[in-house]
Design a protein around this nucleic acid. Structure first.
Length: 269
DNA sequence: AAGTCTACCTGAGGGC
DNA sequence: TGCCCTCAGGTAGACT
């Protein structure tokens, strides 16, 4: 489900509700996610949530008693409700907060995870990540040299968090379409100019998707329960057989790196 | 080393 | 209606 724009939407949605809140209860209903929720998570009892940040597709809750690292996997969702909330199927983890609020982690497929780190402890998951796509550090000057010797399809590179973070299958497809680049192209044969175009489009697509509250394909909702509106702006993702919005030729679906890939053979070279 | 494939898990939707 | 198959927003780890 969630790529950078969805995770950023979640961060922005939950932050005003939980920043400054005190943790009044920690409840684990299903410990077995991608990694088990650590037993020590109960130590958060009594802690204050000081900050809510996002890095790549990770959420980091900084509390007075440690940092909570959350990844939503494919189907994770967070909602903030009042403490008389109704449980839903696949609610795995609940933080009860001051002012009768609760934070609920729900994840049908359980590919997400929740881990706990000390405030001075490095978080291994964050150490090998590429720069944030919306920062100046993500540029053609950064990316083009990194593609040297890489023969993988450029689309696989875009989805590899060691090259660019935050783009998953939807936004990799959309960015390549916007840049007019064939997703199958070996990464190392993109010119500097093409990489410049691609970098610019990745930034534009992600920024626009954040403005729209992310993409709701089926089950993604923002923490207040409303959908993201970027789905109606998708130009190629999921559009197999539909006319290309630029040239009218049929959008094609292929498989690259085991992931569905959509593109216009006419517009993307 | 780099690239490819598999596994993890549930649910929705299509074909029959 | 129901069974079986395929597919789905991510990523680590095991292969070649």
């Amino acid at each position: 489900m969630p790529e950078l724009p969805e995770v950023e939407t979640v961060r922005a949605g939950i932050s005003p509700h939980i920043k400054g809140a005190k943790i009044r209860g920690v409840e684990v209903y299903h410990r077995q996610l991608r990694y088990p929720i650590p037993e020590e998570i109960e130590q958060l009892y009594g802690a204050t949530i000081e900050d809510v940040e996002r890095r790549a597709k990770y959420l980091i809750l900084t509390t007075s008693k440690g940092k909570v690292l959350i990844h939503l996997g494919m189907s994770g969702a967070i909602r903030i409700l009042s403490d008389d909330f109704e449980h839903k199927k696949h609610d795995h983890f609940v933080l009860r907060l001051s002012e009768e609020k609760v934070l609920i982690y729900n994840d049908p497929r359980r590919f997400g995870f929740i881990l706990l780190y000390g405030n001075d402890e490095p978080i291994p998951f964050l150490e090998k990540l590429a720069p944030e796509p919306l920062s100046d550090a993500f540029s053609a000057e950064y990316l083009h040299p990194k593609l040297k010797g890489r023969t993988r399809p450029i689309k696989s590179i875009l989805m590899d968090q060691a090259f660019v973070v935050g783009a998953g299958n939807i936004y990799a497809n959309e960015s390549l379409f916007m840049a007019g680049i064939d997703p199958k192209r070996p990464a190392n044969n993109l010119s500097f100019g093409e990489v410049e175009r691609l970098v610019a489009e990745v930034k534009k697509v992600l920024a626009r998707a954040i403005e729209q509250g992310g993409t709701t394909l089926k089950d993604f909702t923002t923490p207040d329960g409303s959908p993201g509106y970027f789905a109606q702006e998708l130009l190629v993702y999921g559009q197999k057989g539909q006319p290309c919005p630029l040239c009218g030729q049929e959008i094609v679906r292929i498989v690259l790196g085991n992931r569905a890939t959509y593109f216009c053979p006419q517009c993307q070279k």
